[in-house]
């Protein structure tokens, strides 16, 4: 048996340093009438994340830069931003995926459709109001069984995707319909509704389908797929929305 040859390989993570122009759309409600671009030159490695770069700007160049972040590991959903023209989580976006070479520019803007409070920080209240509107809690009035409420693996599979959502708003604020019609509940709320509608143990299916059937619900969706492309959790959002649309329709029939 031949032994696999061990070659000293360069670790994949070794990445050259590069100088980037980081263009941030800034807005200070106390000073500015309009948002304006400010460019910072930052030295970074291709393996760094966009969050590292804007942290660098805040910590060493301009402490007034305002943005949200918390976990820095793509799970809290705080740092959705419009990076190089697409919604992404800053902590989950590697520089090598958005720039090619030293000297390149990355643009960072607040997510759209929500009011900008300062710099990259937007008012998330309307987003969470839409979330609350779908009754995002388990409803089952039947007497509790002695042990847990059983769900088969197949039935659990139906809500596997929708239960992955971290409520980051990347989807809702990428939706062209939401930009022009803020009363549309938006893809994130529909994903959340899907999580309960397709939960075999939940009993408020009918109520939630009725909410989805209102004129702020699923029928606003025009299948533009921006949400699906934007979701950092790889949730097939448009597919889930279509499932909810069909559920609403067949319930009516």
């Amino acid at each position: 048996m031949t032994q696999a040859q061990i070659t000293p390989s360069t670790p994949a993570t070794v990445a050259a340093m590069m100088t980037l122009k980081v263009k941030v759309l800034r807005f200070d409600p106390e000073k500015d009438k309009k948002a304006h671009w400010v460019t910072y030159e930052v030295e970074a490695s291709a393996a760094d994340r966009v969050l590292d770069v804007i942290n660098h700007v805040k910590w060493y160049m301009d402490p007034s830069l305002t943005f949200r972040r918390s976990c820095a590991h793509g799970i809290c959903g705080s740092d959705a931003m419009l990076i190089n023209g697409r919604n992404r989580l800053a902590c989950k976006t590697l520089l090598r995926d958005v720039v090619k070479k030293s000297g390149d520019t990355i643009t960072v803007e607040p997510i759209r459709g929500l009011k900008v409070e300062k710099d990259l920080l937007v008012d998330m209240e309307p987003f969470f109001d839409s979330y609350k509107a779908i009754m995002p809690y388990f409803i089952n009035e039947s007497p509790e069984p002695a042990a847990e409420r059983i769900q088969s693996p197949e039935l659990a599979e139906r809500m596997a995707h929708s239960s992955n959502c971290i409520l980051c708003a990347c989807c809702t604020t990428s939706c062209p319909i939401f930009w022009v019609n803020g009363s549309y509940l938006g893809p994130a709320s529909i994903v959340q509704a899907h999580r309960f509608i397709f939960d075999s143990r939940d009993e408020a299916t009918q109520q939630r389908l009725n909410i989805m059937n209102q004129n702020t619900g699923v029928w606003r969706c025009r299948t533009a797929y921006n949400c699906t492309e934007a979701c950092p959790r790889d949730i097939p959002i448009t597919q889930l929305i279509e499932e909810v649309k069909r559920a609403v329709m067949y319930q009516q029939a």
Binding site: L82, N84, G85, R86, R112, S174, P176, R222, T223, A224, Y225, N226, T228, E229, T238
Partner: peptide, 13 residues
């Protein structure tokens, strides 16, 4: 301009 993919242009067209 938001850099959406095919779906966005399909919708706009």
């Amino acid at each position: 301009m938001y850099r959406g993919r095919e779906g966005q242009w399909a919708f706009l067209l």
